[in-house]
Design a protein around this nucleic acid. Structure first.
Lengths: 215, 215
DNA sequence: TGACCAGCGGTCATATAGTGACCAAAGTTC
DNA sequence: GAACTTTGGTCACTATATGACCGCTGGTCA
């Protein structure tokens, strides 16, 4: 309610306004194409003012991505709270994953590109680490679902967790990225979803029927 | 949507925040008691900043009153749109008038004090003129109602408009001010309203039955 | 291939907004 | 009427905002 609080609050608001403006631009046009000038214009500020809140274009971009990645993971927290079957959980996981990326194509592009050539991207250190952690988290969610499936007898206990999990992860990302850069915009979401669904069902069926070495 | 617009908008917002803060303080405590410091605090600004938007304490006060007086008159505009009887209109007029002042006691205090000793108050010239105009407007609203009453045969055509109108105006203000500065806070509104109602009814009855010199 | 150019990230001198210690004057206390 | 307090208003200083400008980069073309 005081004077200092007001100034902090206003500074925070302005910073958020910049981030909000920048986010839209980045996610519509990508890092390279977006100019500081355009961010400033959208945020109703001058170019110089941007640098009162961020030290570089890269920093803006980084902060947005870090924030997005964190929000992203919040969506998975209650995935195994009301557990139906593991198959169901996998399908729900895939659904959430696809939806998020349909809404945040730039984020997906970053993460995919990162996976493809980690070293050459030279993103800021902080972002690098965050992406690695993020990917690991995603994979471990899948792994958890697998464990749950084995526990309740849905999947054979003999499946190779690491391999199965990585394959599924690859399946998801592969399908998404395939469709994200080809085909018509209008039917894209539908195409991705149905392809993922089909792919997953086949994959799950395979898992369930995987030969049991000792059975 | 541009940069200049944003700055103008923000300046306007800040000014309004100051006025809003000041208004509450003035109308709770009166001009003298309120300090610039307290206004600044409520508006979450420093004292010096207030002077970036207003040149004096008096100017703040003046702007608030001018604004309030204008808003005040807006309430009377549709009083004679759906005309019932003139008596009804007078009662409605009185009701609105009382309500407004119950919500804005400082304004009433100013206007009454002004009527009592116009010359000694030395308010800013602009405010002075505005108050005079305001009073005239109020009185002419009453006069209009009277005319309407005569037209439709509710009041005798022989009544002295000027006298009747001024007496009614005095009646209203007298009753309000009487109660405003005496009695308990809790029952004040009720007391004023019922007293006004009774007084008006008597007054109207008198008008209607006023002897007609040539009838 | 290298001269030229356009575009953009980032800087900086300048302008505007905000702050609070300070002052003069007016009021209050004793 | 001296000592003290209170407060409207000022001003030197700080923080925030602006946009012309600079240097670098990547592309173009002779």
């Amino acid at each position: 309610m005081g004077l200092v609080e007001r100034r902090i609050r206003e500074r925070e608001n302005r910073k958020n306004a910049i981030l909000k403006a920048a986010r839209r631009l980045f996610f519509e046009n990508g890092f390279r194409t977006v100019t500081i000038e355009s961010i400033a214009k959208k945020a109703e500020l001058s170019k110089g003012s941007i640098y009162l809140y961020f030290k570089s274009k890269e920093e803006i971009y980084t902060q947005i991505l870090l924030n997005d990645i964190d929000k992203f993971h919040e969506h998975f927290t209650d995935l195994l709270q009301n557990p139906t079957s593991a198959s169901e959980a996998l399908i729900r996981f895939a659904g959430i994953y696809v939806d998020l990326f349909l809404n945040d194509r730039e984020l997906f592009r970053i993460l995919m590109t990162f996976m493809l050539h980690t070293t050459t991207m030279n993103l800021p250190e902080e972002l690098n680490n965050h992406i690695i952690k993020s990917t690991n988290k995603n994979i471990s969610v899948i792994e958890e679902i697998f464990r749950y499936g084995i526990e309740r007898g849905e999947f054979p206990p003999t499946i190779n967790l690491r391999l199965s999990r990585n394959a599924l992860w690859g399946l998801l990302n592969g399908i998404i990225s395939l469709h994200l850069f080809t085909g018509s915009e209008s039917r894209r979401a539908e195409m991705i979803r149905s392809t993922i669904k089909a792919g997953l069902e086949i994959y799950i069926l395979g898992l369930k029927n995987q030969e049991q070495p000792n059975g």
